[in-house]
Amino acid sequence: MQGNLRNAFCSMELLAHRLASMNALSAVEWELLLEPRHSSRAYSAGSEIRDPGGDGMRQSLIVSGWASREHVSHSGRRQLLSILLPGDLIGDPAEGHALDAVEIVALSGVRTIGTAGFMSIVNGDADRYSRIASGLSALRCGDETRLLDHIVRLGSQPAPQRIASFVLELFARCRVIGFVTGSSFPMPLTQEMLGGALGLSVVHVNRVIHRLKADRLISLQGGRVTIDDAIGLASLAELMSG
């Protein structure tokens, strides 16, 4: 379902934070990234994010909301391949990268802005925007690395470790974009979505989360996860990997 194009002030601030966490950006690069963008597209939860192109939005950036790359089987079962957060880029399927050809679905209300013009500027002046360019390349590598980690998670890890490592991954990603307060971060994922992402039945997710809460490793309230015992959670993830 195509989103609604709206005029609303948006910026690439979260992407800028992600890039700056890897390389110190120059003043010119900050200026480009923080330039106000006035055209954005809004998607409701459950709708497919598939920008039609022609308006510079085939490549886009999520500025708010969560989405997922998904595979839907003939039987209707959804396998979430990766979670996309604010500050994550959606590439142009026409460029041939497998990750960009996968269906992307909004898990919550999502707003995107087009990045084709931005990419064109960066690619057109490699010297001036060298740190942005290298950062974008690193972000793509990060996407692929996370996908490989996810394959390992699905293929060889028991449920408690899958959930523990997934929570820690989301925590780390939210911290980079400034979404962590204390030791808590927003997680607008239902247990069904977690099950879809982690290859577990909903009741299995429910049971493991129940145990993690009982063991005082995490707590959940109002769509936020609080990591109450980071060392314990990390130990659980690592101890069970053998």
């Binding site: 028991p158 449920a159 577990l200 039945s201 909903v202 009741v203 299995h204 049971r207």
Partner: peptide, 29 residues
């Protein structure tokens, strides 16, 4: 483990399918 929350499923066949999937995961873990 008493399941106090429950899970919405279309019908009994769906519950049986979910039970097998859950059991498979638990027995593996």
């Amino acid at each position: 483990f008493d399941d106090l929350q429950g899970t919405e499923l279309p019908d009994l066949a769906g519950a049986r399918k979910e039970a097998l999937r859950f059991a498979s995961g638990l027995l593996t873990d």
